[in-house]
Design a binder for these strands. Structure first.
Length: 565
RNA sequence: UGGGGUGUAGCCAAGCGGUAAGGCAGCGGCCUUUGGAGCCGCCAUUCGGAGGUUCGAAUCCUCCCGCCCCAGCCA
């Protein structure tokens, strides 16, 4: 849904406005985007980033970037760097507010100590497996740990020794004393600190005990003075626990509000599964242009504007939903249509000889760079006797409604002339079409005819002699099923991978004006789609990624004809 | 047969007791030197279901049904 004056506010904005009105937190709005640096950001995170940073902008507040780095065994600096790059690229600025849960480890330890002193936490010697069994089930209450009644003094001592490194991983944990019979399993004396002898990407070997997310998250929000702590639905059950900590410790109370995470058709948005695709080589890396990661989308040629627009349009609610990937592509095309420079490229060349155009002669024709924006100017494109057109733009025996080139038929070459096909040269052996002989009408320069004669088709083309070659990578959706996770029992989501998601065309013919394009540059290849220069490009060897094809009405007509014939 | 959420079109999503916004997709048409773009029109007699309250219900009440999440020393 698009935001504008006429539409009403979503439930989060409604709530924030009412908080402002009642002067809660003195009308302050302070949010945060809290990624764990254990993977690359994806389009689902973009929803959260746009929400949190967007809210701060709209309500004149602030938004922190905070890394929730409480699990040293999964987190790496590579991920924090990529996350910072992606958030920036999306167009958001956290200024000097780059925080880490690990910045607060000392404070968190102090909070845990306070809990112990209040008799609200204890050191438990049960094994992980025992704790699990003591927890009970969804329908049965749990049992209290035999260690729950240790004295404050003993707990303090034990916890201190845990920190000092006197115990092995897994031998003891610190637990909150809440209620083993709570119907909310999160309240059944949850673990809040565990022993992990592992070096942390920021704190190194300073710590060998680490707070659990459930303990750290709400308290970090509190420390930072976060007024509205937005997270996804699955944390709704954890809110009572966070609130319990805040209450026991009597500290600033952030308000957590949960919303539904983004799901996208034909794609998988789970860090674990994306990691799997990367590690097992199904894609070439986190930034493979087929990946729904921010870095993948960037490399594919998506613009930050289009992603932000998408995030504005998908809406915000509490019901689980799957947004149609068509909406994402729509936002992309809408933006690229206005911004991308038009250029001609022939992906699958067929030679055309203009018999009545003198050998050796060349002309330089005017071409607009973007019909949507005259301000983008014009360029010259060379025309000569030998050209390439797209193979699919010629049919010896044209089907109904085909208005491209065919024997004795006249079409327009975009920005150039009308041409008429006179002769088809075939390979004697294979019978395949090798070359076309055409004549052009010199009176139609620029693509107009003074006699008012109309031509139905307009083709893109390049001059053979002037063309530059480039590699083009065409992408299709990574998964062939709408919901890639929908598999039979025992089957893996990877069986839904599309084996044809990448097609490489090693040598396409492009008009010479693109010869000094740089990685990241975006173009519309006329009548084909939007493309951008891949960083794999070398001097003299350009590589383009197809960002998204143009809408193809002709393909639709063909499909319909097929189904009715 | 515990607890927490949630059901409005193919997909999102407004709506908050006065007679179903909008976007995407789809379908028709117009226009077009990109079969692109643009423009115009169509697309829920009905809101998970059944009862009830009311002059009036997607909105309130009751019961029922579906779907999602929770039994990590992950986040």
């Amino acid at each position: 849904m698009k935001k504008n004056e006429d539409t009403t506010l979503d439930f989060i904005r409604t709530r924030i406005e009412s908080d402002i009105k009642s002067n809660k937190n003195n009308g302050r709005v302070h949010t945060r985007f809290p990624p764990e640096p254990n993977g690359y950001l994806h389009i689902g995170h973009a929803k959260s980033i746009c929400l949190n940073f967007g809210l701060a902008q709209e309500y004149n507040g602030k938004c922190n970037l905070r890394f929730d780095d409480t699990n040293p065994s999964k987190e790496e600096v590579e991920y924090v760097e990529s996350i910072k790059k992606d958030v920036r690229w999306l167009g958001f600025d956290w200024e000097d507010r780059e925080y880490y849960a690990s910045d607060y480890f000392e404070k968190l330890y102090e909070y845990a100590t306070q809990l112990i002193k209040k008799g609200k936490a204890f050191v438990c010697d049960l094994t992980a497996d025992q704790i699990k069994r003591y927890r009970g089930t969804l329908t049965e209450p749990g049992k209290e740990s035999p260690y729950k009644n240790r004295s404050v003094k003993e707990n303090l001592e034990l916890f201190r020794k845990m920190r000092k490194g006197e115990y092995e991983d897994g031998s003891r944990v610190l637990r909150a004393k809440i209620d083993m019979s709570s119907p909310n399993l999160n309240m059944r004396d949850p673990v809040i600190y565990r022993i992990v002898h592992e070096s942390h990407h920021r704190t190194g070997d300073k710590w060998c005990i680490y707070p659990m997310y459930d303990f750290a998250h709400g308290l970090c929000d509190s420390i930072e003075g976060i007024t509205h702590s937005l997270c996804t639905l699955e944390f709704e059950d954890h809110r009572p626990l966070y609130d319990w900590f805040l209450e026991q410790l009597n500290v600033f109370h952030s308000q957590q509000i949960e919303f539904a995470r983004l799901n996208l058709s034909y794609t998988v948005l789970s860090k674990r599964k994306l990691l799997e695709l990367v590690e097992e080589g199904y894609v070439k890396g986190w930034d493979d242009p087929r990946m729904p990661t921010i870095s993948g989308l960037r490399r594919r040629g998506y613009t930050p504007e289009s992603i932000r627009d998408f995030c504005d349009r998908i809406g915000l609610a509490k019901r689980e939903s799957v947004v149609d990937i068509d909406l994402l592509e729509h936002c992309l095309r809408e933006h690229l249509n206005k911004k991308a420079k038009r250029v001609m490229a022939v992906l699958d060349p067929l030679e055309v000889i203009i018999d009545n155009f003198p050998e050796g002669k060349e002309e330089h024709l005017d071409a607009e760079n973007n019909p949507e924006d005259p301000g983008m100017g014009k360029r010259k494109i060379p025309f000569s006797r030998s050209l390439y057109i797209e193979k699919e733009d010629f049919r010896e025996d044209p089907p109904r409604k085909y208005f491209r080139l065919a024997p004795d038929r006249e079409v327009r070459l975009k920005h150039a002339y009308y041409i008429k096909c006179n002769q088809v040269i075939k390979d004697k052996g294979t019978g395949k079409i090798k070359r076309l002989h055409c004549t052009y009408d010199p009176e139609t320069k620029g693509g107009w005819s003074k006699d008012g004669r109309k031509v139905k088709g307009t083709l893109h083309w390049v001059s053979a002699r002037h063309a530059i070659k480039a590699e083009i990578r065409l992408y299709d959706r990574l998964f062939q099923t709408k919901n890639p996770l929908d598999v039979k029992k025992g089957e893996d989501f990877k069986k839904n991978l599309n084996p044809e998601s990448l097609k490489i065309i090693p040598s396409c013919m492009l008009e010479p004006s693109v010869s000094n394009a740089r990685p990241g540059d975006r173009f519309q290849f006329l009548r084909k789609g939007y493309f951008c220069v891949d960083p794999d490009s070398k001097k003299g060897h350009l590589v383009f990624n197809q960002t998204v094809p143009l809408r193809d009405t002709w393909a639709k007509i063909l499909k319909k004809q097929k189904t009715y014939e």
